[in-house]
């Protein structure tokens, strides 16, 4: 019996053979991603200074570019993005209780002077901050009329400034501290071993994929009897499918870097992602409006299944190379 125990322990230890290129991932994936986010957000802030009208194409373009940059790193939900709920302040979604329009309507009705200073605006509910709140102000007819135009202009500018500051703070923390903690895993308290840092990155891939499947696709799908197209992400600006594709791009980049030295896992990942991208490319439904028809729904379900197929490859082929358990309960606990 004792021998059996030792044998199991040895097998268990043997699965954790990670020499994942954490430093290369920080340099080649994390820092460039957050640099792009900080730059695009700074551009949004500067643009909003002179372009605060809802229909202004320059404002919309700058907002879209910064939002793109966020979606591309939105799977990297640990460390600097989690300090002070920064990630939620950038992207409060899903908003299952309609908190964002409620909070915005409250600010506008009161002409709340909290928009006048950056410090003041940082105290506003996270539901009224970030890319999704800004989308309401520039795409939702309930918020883009003539009423209170001057106040809404100030609100747009306050939001853009807030986004830029948060993005800059995330980048600063990564550069000043967190990048080194990951590279130096084993020599600090956050990551005691290189395995722990690799596993954090692995978790970013798997939770990012889960969010895309369950939430970006699952929410608009709703149920067969009750599809919910207006629960798609950023449907007001027509970006729902775009977000699915961009988030898949982000996790693919990271997953393939994690699979370095494991050609079989890399090939399986490449094939699974390739299939999902092909399905997304053929899907002529940018906001998943088609979920209300059986055929349209089928198309979105196929895409969701393709994302779930990637998740299985990640769990079963990539995880074990990094010492991440792929068991029945470990993968899918409750």
């Amino acid at each position: 019996m004792r021998r059996a125990l030792v044998l199991v322990a040895a097998l268990w230890a043997g699965t954790a053979a990670a020499e994942a290129p954490v430093a290369a991932i920080v340099e080649g994936h994390v820092l460039p991603g957050f640099t792009r986010l900080a730059e695009a957000s700074a551009t949004l802030d500067a643009t909003a200074d002179d372009h605060c009208a809802p229909e202004d194409p320059a404002l919309r373009a700058a907002w879209g570019a910064a939002f793109d940059a966020w979606i591309a790193v939105s799977h990297l939900r640990f460390g600097p993005t989690e300090t002070g709920d920064r990630a939620f302040a950038l992207a409060f979604w899903p908003d299952s209780r309609g908190a964002t329009p409620k909070a915005l309507a409250g600010l506008i009705a009161a002409r709340d002077p909290v928009v006048e200073t950056a410090e003041g605006f940082a105290t506003v509910s996270i539901a009224a901050r970030g890319f999704h709140a800004l989308e309401f102000l520039i795409y939702d007819p309930a918020f883009t009329g003539d009423d209170a135009a001057a106040y809404r202009c100030a609100l747009v500018q306050a939001m853009a400034g807030d986004i830029a500051r948060i993005a800059a703070d995330i980048l600063t923390d990564w550069r000043a501290d967190y990048a080194e903690r990951m590279r130096d895993a084993g020599g600090n308290d956050t990551y005691r071993t290189p395995d722990e840092a690799a596993q954090e990155l692995f978790k970013a891939v798997s939770t990012g994929l889960q969010f895309t499947s369950d939430t970006r696709l699952g929410r608009p799908l709703g149920t067969f009897d009750k599809p919910r197209p207006t629960r798609a992400e950023a449907w007001r600006s027509g970006r729902s499918l775009r977000h699915v594709v961009m988030s898949l791009d982000g996790t693919r980049d990271l997953a393939l870097m994690l699979a370095e030295g494991h050609p079989e896992a890399a090939a399986a990942l490449d094939a699974a992602y390739g299939r999902a991208f092909a399905i997304a490319r053929d899907l002529d439904d940018p906001v998943f409006a088609g979920v209300e028809t059986p055929e349209g729904r089928f198309q979105v379900e196929i895409l969701q299944q393709a994302v779930d197929a990637i998740r299985r490859v990640v769990a079963q082929d990539l995880g074990p190379t990094l010492g991440v358990a792929a068991g029945f309960n470990a993968l899918d606990g409750d």
């Binding site: 299952s96 499947s213 939430t215 699952g218």
Partner: peptide, 10 residues
């Protein structure tokens, strides 16, 4: 309708 997505972590 959102599966097991956690809607209110913040």
């Amino acid at each position: 309708e959102a599966g097991r997505t956690k809607l209110n972590l913040s």
